[in-house]
Write a protein that binds this DNA or RNA. Structure first.
Lengths: 229, 229
DNA sequence: GAAAATCATTTGCCTAGACATATTACCCGC
DNA sequence: GCGGGTAATATGTCTAGGCAAATGATTTTC
């Protein structure tokens, strides 16, 4: 007899999956469920609350709990550091710095990151290899106003990604995925043809409201991001 | 004065983000925190438990709670029904069925879905419009062995997506995202040029271990999938 | 010294009862 | 029939206390 709320949760989940309680239908209230399962209301509450967090049911005060019409399926992706992603798949990781510039913040970046005054940014371009095949092209901009010491770091060995993770551990971020076409630069670095469709991930990061970094990550042809739920 | 556990949670989160409690460090135990915040231990428990679920801290019995070295970054995407996605953005939704075939299960589909014996599948092609602009091209295959009555449904008005959601509401799924190039069919339906890079989502669905449906969803040029965390 | 048994600490979960809050349902006056 | 106020109800959260389980630390035994 351990973790009763888990059992309650699974019984309810089974009833929903099997269609005993169909979409849109109201399920019994917490007091009745507690009576049925012979437990405290708090136990039922936790079970049903977690099901609601998973998107299986919808709860409203007074109105009760009902099975969702269209289950809000939330797909969860872990966003690992590239090196870990490659090494986890058993391939050898290699990193190369392609370019390093110090420049004034371009306007498009100021707009995107919400940078008010002009200042300097560190622009880094690097490529991540898996088993010596190009895997990801990384185009990164670091706000030097927020991280002045980034200018002194030697990024020829440490990838900016890993340096940032150690330096600014807990930040807010916005990530977005889309498709883009390979241009000549990408084609030469990734070893594909110009015009090939490529998977693109962009990420902006803030720390305490201050813009830290923006990165464009373009993956090798055929890259897929997969998850089960 | 509502939701004390939320306040506790935010105070602790702030201390971690600000570096008062650095990566790898042990934070006070629940009893001490409860004393500090003048609340019951259960309240602190919920606060810290949720922080652990978010990946900010790591908990172990007897060992206590410590701040994670590298926070597990989980991006969460909601996978809504197309119509809801479009209507939520304030645009008008329209749906069109392009093609409907009954055919023997092609080999590639049998391999992908883990379908053992050969049987028939229903192949549907449709397009979803937002404000009369093509938004998503949907290429769907439904396993008739699992859903024989799908053959009798009129999909000219109801989109297969919505019919399936009502009929087989809660299933296991695998979803994957990638980039693809527009071919002539896609170009004509989506109104883009041949060769344009397009964002592709593929989804396989099972119900109680039985393959139900596989769908390829190709989005209009420039589509982005975004999330904050 | 190494392995095994015991102890202590911390999180995990449960109960029973209480009050708060949102929201529906109903009743009433018009 | 309709608008507005009021009561009823289901969920949301808190408290105080208690037992369970995992596991790091310590001590005992061989």
């Amino acid at each position: 007899m351990k973790a009763a709320f888990r059992d309650v949760k699974e019984v309810i989940r089974t009833r929903i999956v099997d269609g005993d309680w169909g979409p849109g239908e109201l399920i019994p209230n917490e007091i009745d469920l507690a009576a049925e399962f012979q437990c405290a209301r708090a136990t039922v509450n936790r079970a049903v609350r977690e099901l609601a967090e998973e998107g299986l049911v919808e709860r409203k005060r007074k109105a009760g709990t009902r099975v969702r019409m269209s289950p809000v399926r939330r797909a969860q992706f872990e966003i690992p550091v590239v090196r870990e992603e490659i090494e986890a798949s058993g391939r050898m990781y290699r990193y190369a710095l392609v370019r390093r510039d110090l420049c004034d913040t371009p306007d498009w970046l100021r707009a995107r990151m919400g940078l008010g005054d002009r200042g300097q940014v560190l622009h880094l371009v690097c490529v991540h290899y898996a088993d010596n095949n190009p895997y990801q092209y990384e185009d990164r901009w670091i706000n030097l106003a927020a991280l002045p010491n980034a200018a002194d770091v030697d990024f020829s060995e440490t990838s900016p990604n890993e340096w940032l993770v150690e330096t600014v551990p807990f930040s807010d971020a916005e990530i977005s995925f889309s498709a883009t076409a390979s241009d000549e630069v990408l084609a030469s670095h990734l070893g594909c043809a110009v015009g090939n469709p490529l998977f693109l991930a962009e990420r902006s990061t803030w720390w305490r409201g201050e813009p830290i970094t923006y990165v464009r990550m373009v993956f090798q042809r055929g890259h897929r991001m997969t998850t089960r739920f």
